[in-house]
Design a binder for these strands. Structure first.
Lengths: 336, 336
DNA sequence: CCAGAAAATGTATGCGCTTACAGTCGAAGG
DNA sequence: CCTTCGACTGTAAGCGCATACATTTTCTGG
């Protein structure tokens, strides 16, 4: 690590100019084979790795796309579970909720698409200052709807293309899932077999609003307000005075929370009450009963975001892009 | 996006020198409040976002940590599922394997730790050239064991600290899970209730070797060779002439493949044969029967990797670091 | 063997920022 | 009133690379 070599070092070692070194790396054909060989040897010998910073500065482009998440402040560290070879606890199962955050999938999709297009992906989470910093590092930025103050977005949006994931937006490009119609279809399905319905909303925001709007097109219900967490699902289910025919939740987490409570009370699902969610998280597939839901194509959202960004990068004059990805109602045990 | 403003623009607008602008951003206290105010106004007015490239070049540091994955060449794109509001397919379940790649978790852990320490995380996947490129962009690099040619690692290792995830390594820092002892304990557990054991190895590599070594300490078996994929688990299970008392697999994926075949043949697990895996992936918790396994702390691996890198960044003279994280045998239905 | 064109290489500049160092200016001390 | 010092601010020199342009080398055909 002692003082990383630069083009100058390589050039000197190979007996050429720095321009030639640069050419060998960026347009090899422009250099005579013999010279190229010599430079490559120098590169290998010196352990030269070009600085992307310098390069980016020179070409005014980083080839990196940023993905910003608000801070999920759990996981605040704690000691790592080190081990010497002897200790291996044996136990039954682990209580930990596999709160498989849905954006793992978004992330994966974005990464895959970025890789395909020759971009690297930079992910950062934190507060507003982190977002600003990130914006200075990338060619384009994808942000979850409703997680960043408008003025900040506007600020960084003047420098690089920004795409909003989820929700609607009239200022920036955005990609989202077909929330409202998805919930509408699910509501139709439910309404066909249930008379009284309880609808559990999530934290206020575009997702919550759209899903509720979709629901309202197809049915009506007693409305409760949760916050998208499993806990809030439990809370609300506990507070229910009398059981409706169906409980529809604005997302899977809350629906799972509802199932938790119902199960603990010996209420049968779907016989006594039907339950539905929204998102299509993995946990819902494996719960008992498995959860009827509306599946969102998370990975595709990530991919689409990258596509939108690269498209705008290629042609800044592009008119505002708004992609809507298809959702799918998935009927499972909780409301067949 | 028209020509992003620079320090010069801000300086001119605020009527100060570029040094002052820089100070306002990096050490605000060194600037008189009134001046600072003026600069900040200019920043907001012009939509100024500092270029991390230029900054990085000047301070010779990026504050980014890289995470490299080999290319998982599935997901080769395909059309995105766009949608107009009308179409919402309703169906039962989706066949797709939730191949929740374990490094999602590693990634999440790494990201969390990086954020805590004021670093951003850059993830890239692809071939060797991508790795080199990545190396030029970051202050430190985490790489999965056995996925990068030795000479390449050596090359980039001369520029920045590299930490190997999993496996052993005598050249670089590394963090890994307590593979061998974990498998050893599991094998003891199995051997206590099974006479004939089949052991399914994975693709050759440090993980496979260590797990098998651990197994061998506690039991012996007929050995088969898989490649860590679910498919190979199925294949091997299909080819079994006579059923052993237990089938131990070098990872969960293969174990799930084995379960697939056994179930389709009406063989009862664990009554007729016991099955175990290794890793503790989510799918194993939810399979039927649920899978006995050795749980690796993936997220912690990611966190540890970042810790190791930052530690070395802080003190390059540090002696070689080798962290071993504890694993946990988790007994579930497939081999209680 | 030579002019002229094409290929190969070198020179020099700038990308946007940080920071050592050099002023500037007003207040405190003499 | 002048010096001294500290608080601020400005000047200028890189950081490592790409690239337009200039220069040299090599190749072509006559």
């Amino acid at each position: 690590m002692a003082k990383a070599p630069t083009v100058y070092d390589v050039a000197e070692y190979a007996g050429v100019s720095i321009a030639t070194v640069s050419r060998v790396l960026r347009s090899p054909d422009a250099v005579k084979a013999e010279t190229r060989e010599r430079v490559l040897e120098a590169v290998a010998f010196l352990g030269y790795v070009p600085s992307a910073n310098a390069r980016g500065l020179a070409v005014r482009r980083t080839n990196v796309i940023g993905l910003f998440f608000p801070r999920h402040d759990d996981h605040e560290g704690g000691a790592l579970p080190f081990s010497t070879s002897a200790e291996v606890p044996v136990g039954t199962d682990d209580p930990e909720d596999d709160e498989n955050l849905y954006y793992d999938e978004v992330l994966r999709g974005a990464e895959a698409e970025a890789a395909r297009r020759g971009f690297a992906l930079m992910v950062a989470s934190g507060a507003d200052d982190v977002l600003s910093d990130l914006a200075g590092r990338v060619d384009g930025l994808a942000v979850l709807a409703g997680t960043v103050p408008e003025h900040l977005l506007a600020h960084v949006g003047r420098r690089i293309p920004v795409v909003i994931l989820g929700g609607r937006d009239d200022e920036f490009d955005h990609v989202s899932a077909n929330n409202a119609p998805g919930m509408r279809e699910l509501a139709r399905h439910v309404a066909a077999q249930a008379t009284t319905i309880a609808y559990v909303r999530g934290a206020p925001g575009p997702d919550d609003a759209e899903r509720f709007a979709g629901f309202s097109e197809a049915a009506s219900a007693t409305v409760y307000r949760g916050d998208f967490t499993r806990r809030s699902g439990r809370l609300i289910a506990s507070g229910l005075d009398e059981l409706p025919d169906a409980i529809m939740c604005a997302n899977d987490q809350m629906a799972l929370g509802v199932l938790d409570v119902l199960e603990s009370r010996g209420i049968r699902v779907p016989d006594d009450v039907r339950v539905t969610g929204f998102d299509g998280i993995a946990a819902g597939r494996h719960s008992r009963p498995s959860l009827t839901t509306v599946h969102q194509p998370m990975a595709e959202l990530g991919r689409a975001a990258v596509q939108v960004i690269t498209a705008r990068l290629a042609d800044p004059g592009l008119e505002k892009q708004s992609l809507t990805l298809a959702v799918r109602v998935v009927l499972r045990e909780s409301c067949p």
